[in-house]
């Protein structure tokens, strides 16, 4: 008896259809997060851990609600996002042209490559005190820090992307009559897009990581600054709420980037429907 036939023969509860496999899968997938929340609620309810270490779930939810209603979350989130995105955008504006130039110009390639290979894997956050020294402790230094930390990732991705363009694509365009600038904008750039976007998808979370760290060190009105303040006042409810708020901001940023990739790469093997 084949497996399929066996399934069809199984008796269901009288009158009820057996829950399909999709329901079981959905339940499993939700169980992780639900499980965490349940454990958290139980821990708070029965005081299994000191409330300072793990504040009760209702208190954190109340804080979150408060932040949303008073607009505190919106203001802080906007502040953090603004600086992180500004730094990220600047890194793209500088990094993509530089990365492309590296792959096309020998001299530029020779000069910039070692700088990128030092900047890329190293904790550029260590430069934070220098930027505080040069630019103060307000928006400018945070944005510069974010740009500096992400630009190397973008350069490397743009370089790899343009280098990896299949030469037969370029040759086809040339033999169809395209001139140099046309070949660059109409063929090389679109062909390099997937890899460049992958680099951007790595750089954006990095921008947020650095921005949050910078806020914790320099203060200010962003989510990071507020969270560190909460810690200083031993306000663990505030810290937990802050983590959830930053996670939401992170999810928005990452999700937005993924959606952008989907739109720009509708033609790609990964996204095109077969």
């Amino acid at each position: 008896m084949s497996g399929q036939a066996a399934l069809e023969r199984l008796p269901g509860r009288s009158g009820w259809a057996r829950p399909g496999p999709w329901l079981r899968i959905a339940a499993l997938r939700a169980s992780g997060i639900v499980g965490v929340l349940v454990v958290w609620a139980i821990v708070g309810q029965f005081g299994l851990v000191r409330p300072f270490l793990v504040p009760p779930l209702p208190a954190v939810v109340a804080q979150l609600g408060d932040d949303v209603v008073t607009g505190g979350f919106a203001i802080s989130a906007a502040s953090t996002l603004y600086r992180a995105l500004a730094g990220f955008a600047l890194a793209c504006a500088i990094g993509i042209p530089v990365g492309i130039l590296i792959s096309r110009n020998r001299l530029v390639g020779w000069f910039v490559t070692p700088i990128v290979s030092v900047g890329f894997p190293t904790p550029t956050l260590a430069f934070l005190p220098i930027f505080m020294l040069w630019f103060g402790v307000f928006d400018l230094s945070k944005i510069v820090m974010t740009t500096f930390s992400t630009v190397f990732t973008v350069i490397a991705a743009a370089d790899a992307g343009t280098r990896g363009v299949e030469r037969h694509l370029v040759w086809s365009a040339e033999s169809l009559g395209a001139k140099r600038t046309a070949v660059f904008f109409e063929v090389m750039l679109p062909a390099a897009m997937p890899q460049i976007l992958t680099g951007l998808q790595v750089a954006l979370p990095l921008a947020l990581i650095v921005e949050v760290a910078a806020e914790m060190l320099m203060g200010g009105d962003g989510l990071g600054g507020r969270m560190l303040q909460a810690e200083n006042y031993a306000d663990s409810v505030g810290v937990y709420a802050g983590i959830i708020e930053i996670a939401v901001v992170g999810a928005i940023a990452v999700g937005g980037m993924a959606r952008l990739r989907q739109r720009l790469l509708r033609w790609h093997v990964e996204t095109a429907a077969r």
Partner: peptide, 12 residues
Amino acid sequence: AFYPLPKTALVP
């Protein structure tokens, strides 16, 4: 869910 959280947020 853990992925988009900037890990530096866990310092406090």
